[in-house]
Simulated scan of single mutants.
Amino acid sequence: MTITINTDAGFYHRDKVGSYAYWVVSDGLLLKGSGVFSDKCKNPLDAELKAMCNAAHILSVCQGFDFSKVRLIVFNRDNINARSGKNGTQPQKKLSSILRKIKDQCHPLVKVDFRHVKAHNGTPDKRSYVNDWCDKQCKAQLRKWNNERIINQ
Rank of each mutant, 00 (worst) to 15 (best):
I80C: 07
L72F: 01
S84I: 09
K50C: 04
D46T: 04
D46W: 08
S68A: 12
N81F: 08
N87F: 06
G88K: 11
N81A: 07
N81C: 08
D66R: 06
D78H: 00
L59I: 09
V70L: 09
S68R: 06
F67W: 10
A47F: 00
V70K: 04
H57K: 11
V70F: 06
N54Q: 03
H57Y: 13
R83P: 00
P44Q: 01
N54G: 02
L45V: 03
I80W: 10
Q63G: 02
V74H: 01
A55H: 04
Q63T: 05
G88A: 08
C53W: 03
N81W: 11
A55D: 15
A82G: 09
L59Q: 02
D78P: 10
G64R: 03
G64F: 00
N79P: 13
V74E: 06
R71H: 13
I80R: 01
F67V: 13
K86R: 13
M52S: 10
D66E: 09
F67C: 05
K50W: 06
N81V: 12
K86L: 15
A55E: 15
L72T: 15
F65M: 02
G85S: 12
H57A: 11
L45K: 01
F75Q: 08
L49A: 04
N87R: 07
G85T: 13
V70N: 12
K69V: 14
R77E: 14
N87W: 10
L45G: 11
V70H: 05
V70G: 10
S84L: 02
M52R: 03
V74S: 00
V74T: 15
C53L: 09
V61T: 09
V61N: 01
V70R: 07
G64V: 14
F67S: 11
L49I: 14
L49H: 00
G88M: 05
C62E: 15
D46N: 07
D46Q: 03
V61D: 01
S68L: 12
A56N: 07
V61F: 00
A82W: 03
D78K: 02
